[in-house]
Nucleic acid binder design. Sequence first.
DNA 1: TCTCTATGAATGAACG
DNA 2: CGTTCATTCATAGAGA
Lengths: 223, 223
Amino acid sequence: MEWENQHGEEEYLQYQIQNGVCGKVMSDEQVEELKKQIVAYSAISEQLAELHKSMSAHHDFTGIRFGNLYCDPISASVGHKITARQRWTPTPLQLQILENIYDQGTGTPSKQKIKEIASELAQHGPISETNVYNWFQNRRARSKRKFQVSTGSVNAESEPDVSTKEKKTKPVGLDFIDNFSHGVESFYFQGTESGIDQLIGKEESSRGYDPYNNLVEQFGLLG
Amino acid sequence: MEWENQHGEEEYLQYQIQNGVCGKVMSDEQVEELKKQIVAYSAISEQLAELHKSMSAHHDFTGIRFGNLYCDPISASVGHKITARQRWTPTPLQLQILENIYDQGTGTPSKQKIKEIASELAQHGPISETNVYNWFQNRRARSKRKFQVSTGSVNAESEPDVSTKEKKTKPVGLDFIDNFSHGVESFYFQGTESGIDQLIGKEESSRGYDPYNNLVEQFGLLG
DNA sequence: TCTCTATGAATGAACG
DNA sequence: CGTTCATTCATAGAGA
């Protein structure tokens, strides 16, 4: 559904300042649309989770999966990535785990911690301790740089200055979400990735409590 | 998926009337949560899609019951991807200014400088500090590259600029990688950034998209 | 439309 | 640690 196309980005969300409070405004229509999409997503994810579950029951599919993705990247991944890769690239799962750990607020992972993390992530793909270390360094650094918006988001035009998000979101983003992510607060989209494992309740290390599980549960995905 | 139920729609979104406009206002907090939820699904679906793909590769599993559970929902909804991501494009004037500044030789514009530049350029069109920052980064990098190429070896393909690469490619490898790549080339799965379309082998989407940056796109997948 | 190219942006790694 | 570099991904725009 050409959601944005129909409504037009600019109409979709607007900043609304009132009594010093800034929020996003959505029309009923828009809200409705949003809800529909979320529900759709939820439903699908649920089904997929089901699928995964039943599969895992038969095999340890994860192994195959990664074996496939890893050893046979040509068929499994983007397809033009046959060439040697120079730098580490976290798999979604790895990323998710990293983010979870990061969000747990346990500052800088100690050397020991990094070792642990690395070995755990190794189950989901190639990785080294250095990679983990760097990741945390970068994550923190870039997370910090999120504040530099000097009330500059005044520019009118059709392109609202969405402010400087450190990562993922593009400043001139046109899409709904970009606008959603209010100028000041940048949101890291990767930071909130949830994984199949969580959904399915698979064994996972960085579990216990984490904000994302909550979200997932809110969706009722896990049932 | 009982998003509304869990939170209560009215609690989540509230009507706000102002200047005769009626809409629903979300607090930053709410928005943040919404985003997380969306992202969660996005990521989940992506991963599941990967799963599915590799599964398909090993048709051992294709027989189970996901022909219904899995394939249907995705393939059915995949067709609705919304492509909306847009990126900043400097206006001729902005470009001109940027080039001038760049030519003044002042290496890296400090953060302060960037702010100034940004606000100046903002007079000529939408722009953010990040845009400025990126521009300089790219400008420098590409300028350098060009220089290298023009002065480099005649043929650059067989073993392109070892000098440059040598130091860049160091720590990727690890036991894991070495085991797999046999030390030859550490080529490994990199497609983690792919979106569902790519993972599943969707090919009809008009253009590429930004799977991990554009929530809406992924979100829209299921719309 | 499809392809190709220039370039904005993301990010792992390195540097001071 | 904060910055900067190098490399890659994705896209807007030009050309066929």
